[in-house]
Simulated assay, not measured.
Amino acid sequence: MNIAENTADTAQQAANVVQADVQNQVTQSVTTLDHLKDFLLNHGPDVIYAIVIFIVGRYVARAFKNLAVRMMTHANYDHTVITFVSQLIYYAIMALVLLSALNKAGIPTNSFLAAFGAFGLAVGLALQSNLSNFASGLLILIFKPFKAGDWIAVGGVEGSVKGIQMMNTAITTKDNKTIFIPNSSITSSQVTNSSYQQERYITFFFDIGYQNDHHKAIALLKQIFREDRRVLNADTMEIGIREFAESSVRIAAFPKVAKENYYPVYYDTMSKVKDTFDANGIDIPYPQRVIYIQKNEQ
């Protein structure tokens, strides 16, 4: 009998515990629903406004991004700068939209702004030189003093631009070496772009001996340039005596050619001038010194 009573008591206690647990869960659920109801009643309109701000702001950010892409494409900007600037505009607007939505929903954003400001300051101090290269690369991409494929000279390096990156510019030299130059060094240095113009002038200096007829030499040079169809100004080209040097008469000539013909015309002309001068008895003198020896008679 005692065993049956103990069993009944244990079952009753278990039932009481289960009942208490259920009542507690129901109470918590009711309390949560009450809090949710109070939150919706107090902040529901603000939450809806925040969602609307986020959705509309997202469409506005996309619209500004697409507008920037169209404008830069019409202005013939490089594809790299179009992609970078359009993404930068999109995320900058979205950051403002997100902060506005959170603020409208009642979530304080001052702490976010302070944290982002401190983080940005720390990153800026740590990456000062890299940020300078980054900003310089962006300026190069926007203002386009040169582009990929152009032949440039900067900081004692001359070669073809292989690629413009955010931190540096890769230049392939004539001996097929690739040199990476920091963008900040390029924007603070003088850059010579030989491919910027469609036509280029070749500067020639030809030395002949003082005993040679310079009129004949100039006539032969004009004939050489007229026979080369790649020379665009053969009839109006500037040519004449540049100076009387120590051991030669120096003749200057400035033929104009298409930029892709610069070096072919240069090398061909040098070879033709040597052959023509040799065939017509015109000397290309070595540096000379005339020494007078005075003999003292005792």
Score class of each variant (00 low, 15 high):
T7G: 13
D9L: 15
Q12W: 05
Q13M: 15
A14L: 15
V18L: 15
V22L: 13
N24T: 13
V26D: 02
T31N: 15
L33F: 14
L33I: 09
L36W: 11
K37S: 15
L40T: 12
N42C: 11
P45T: 05
I53C: 02
A63L: 12
A63I: 06
K65I: 04
N66P: 02
N66K: 09
M71H: 12
M72V: 00
H74W: 15
T80G: 04
T80W: 02
T83N: 09
V85H: 05
L88T: 13
A92W: 13
A95I: 13
L96F: 09
A101E: 09
A101R: 08
F116C: 03
G117K: 03
F119D: 04
F119V: 08
A122I: 14
G124P: 01
A126H: 00
A126L: 03
N130R: 08
F134G: 02
S136N: 11
S136K: 01
L138E: 04
F143H: 11
K144T: 06
F146A: 11
K147A: 14
K147L: 11
I152C: 01
I152F: 03
G155R: 00
G156S: 04
G156L: 03
V161R: 02
K162D: 14
N168Q: 15
T169L: 02
T169K: 07
T172H: 04
K174T: 07
K174N: 12
K177T: 04
T187D: 03
S189I: 02
N193V: 07
S194I: 10
S195D: 13
Y196V: 08
Q197C: 10
Q198P: 06
Y201S: 14
G209K: 01
Q211S: 07
Q211W: 06
A217T: 07
K222E: 07
R229L: 09
R229Y: 12
L232W: 11
A234E: 04
R242V: 11
R242L: 12
R242C: 12
E243L: 09
E246F: 09
S247N: 04
F254T: 13
F254H: 14
P255A: 04
Y266H: 09
Y266T: 06
T269G: 08
K272R: 07
F277V: 05
A279Y: 05
A279G: 00
N280M: 05
G281P: 08
D283L: 14
P287H: 10
K295M: 05
K295G: 07
E297G: 00
E297D: 00
